[in-house]
């Protein structure tokens, strides 16, 4: 699931889909935490999952706001067309 997310981020060209793939990565982290937590029989991992979910929500709010600001200016969310800055 983590690998799927990473591959998605690297290959997809739509900012929203990339963002969804990042969320996929975070969810795989959550699953890992819960699995280890039940395997080790200690609750620290489950607590961590709550923090990850809260942070992911905050990140989604800021991230989608950025995407909307970009869309208003450029009418696109395709990252190949977002190329004002180049070296």
């Amino acid at each position: 699931m983590f690998i799927t997310g990473v591959v998605g981020v690297l290959t997809r060209r739509n900012a929203i889909i990339i963002f969804m793939c990042i969320e996929l990565m975070l969810n795989s982290v959550n699953l890992t935490f819960v699995a280890f937590s039940s395997y080790l029989g200690n609750e620290a991992g489950q607590m961590f999952v709550f923090f990850v979910m809260a942070v992911a929500a905050a990140e989604a709010a800021v991230g989608l706001a950025i995407v909307i600001a970009l869309f208003r200016n450029r009418q696109t969310v395709n990252i190949n067309e977002v190329n004002v800055l180049k070296w």
């Binding site: 950025i66 970009l70 200016n73 990252i79 190329n83 004002v84």
Partner: peptide
């Protein structure tokens, strides 16, 4: 600035993963 924020956000969130 939009573009900078988008790049920073996507790569930053990716790195957090």
């Amino acid at each position: 600035a939009n573009e900078a924020a988008l790049k920073y956000f996507l790569l930053g969130a990716f790195a957090s993963g």
